[in-house]
Amino acid sequence: MTHSIVPAKVYAGVWAVLIALTFTTVAVSKLELGEYNFIAAMTIAVIKGTLVVTFFMNLKQSSSMIRLFVAAGLFWLAIMFVFVLSDYFSRGWQPLGQWW
């Protein structure tokens, strides 16, 4: 497998963005946005995670097999969220009547 060399300035740039996003997270938490505070914090966290995986963990230069494993990890995370939320969203539903 060939490794392409990533210029140091790319790493430095990504690091600067990560630091900036950290400050943004703190700044957003000071604002009164109600439930959007949470959404904003999670969005920033996802962006930061994506940057780390893509550049620092070299996913950008990785083989399709590695990418498949990363996708599998995300898929498994999605399973957890979808099934847990399926419980939360359906807790208030009324029992079905005799529907058969």
């Binding site: 399973i79 099934f83 399926s86 419980d87 939360y88 969203f89």
Partner: peptide, 22 residues
Amino acid sequence: SFLVWGHHLFVSGQSMYAGMLF
């Protein structure tokens, strides 16, 4: 194995519909 864990929660207060799915 990752799609069945809710069967440990049938009587815990999990929604009935999630219980049926699990």
